[in-house]
C-alpha cells in the first residue's frame, strides 16, 4: 500500500467542497430552524411555568374563599341556633306567665264567687233562722223584731267565721 500524494490532495479538495456545499445548502438552514425551535420550546416552557403559577395562585384563592364561606355558614347556623333557642325560651316563658295569670284569675274568681255565695247563703240562713226563731219565739220577737234580727245576725257572723 503506497501513499499517493495526488489522492491526499483529491481527498482534501473533495472534503473542502463537501464542507462548503453542506454549510451553504444544508446546515445553515438546519441550524437556524433548530435555534428557532429551541426558542419556541423555551417560550412554551416559560408560558407553562407562568400558567402553573397562575393556577396555583387561583387554587389558593379559591381555597381561601371556600374557607371563608364555610366560616360564614357556620356563623349563620350558630346564630340561628341561638336565636331559635332564645325564641323557644321566650315562648315558654310567655306560656308560663300566661298560665300563672290565668290560674290566679281563676282562683280569684272562685274566691269571689265563693264569697258571694257565702254572703248570699249567710243572708238566707239569717232570714231563715229569723223565721224559724220568730216561729219558735214569736211572742218575744213580736215586741222588738229589729233588735232580735240584729242579734241573730251577729251570731251567724260568728258562725260563718268559725266555719
Amino acid at each position: 500500500m503506497n501513499v499517493l500524494w495526488e489522492n491526499i490532495v483529491i481527498t482534501m479538495l473533495s472534503f473542502g467542497i463537501l464542507y462548503w456545499l453542506l454549510h451553504k445548502f444544508a446546515f445553515g438552514k438546519l441550524f437556524a430552524v433548530m435555534e428557532k425551535r429551541r426558542e419556541l420550546v423555551q417560550g412554551q416552557l416559560e408560558e407553562a411555568r407562568q400558567t402553573r403559577e397562575q393556577a396555583t395562585a387561583y387554587v389558593e384563592e379559591q381555597k381561601e374563599a371556600l374557607k371563608q364561606a364555610r366560616q360564614e355558614a357556620f356563623e349563620i347556623i350558630e346564630q340561628s341556633k341561638q336565636s331559635s333557642s332564645k325564641q323557644a325560651r321566650d315562648l315558654l316563658e310567655q306560656a308560663k306567665t300566661d298560665a300563672i295569670r290565668l290560674k290566679d284569675e281563676a282562683v280569684r274568681d272562685i274566691e269571689s264567687e265563693r264569697n258571694k255565695a257565702v254572703d248570699a247563703l249567710r243572708g238566707e240562713i239569717g232570714s231563715f233562722s229569723v223565721n224559724i226563731a220568730s216561729k219558735l219565739i214569736e211572742r218575744e220577737v213580736e215586741s222588738s223584731p229589729t233588735d232580735q234580727e240584729k242579734l241573730v245576725n251577729q251570731y251567724l257572723q260568728e258562725v260563718g267565721r268559725k266555719s
Binding site: 495526488e6 489522492n7 473533495s14 467542497i17 456545499l21 453542506l22 438552514k29 438546519l30 430552524v33
Partner: peptide
Amino acid sequence: HLDLSAVLMLFVSMVIVFVVCRLSVANLSV
C-alpha cells in the same frame, strides 16, 4: 497518478452525504 477507485468512492460518499443532508432539510418545520 489518478486513483479512479478513490475518486469514485469519494464522489459516492459525497453524493450520499449531501443527498441525505439535503433531504433532511427539505421540509424543515419549527
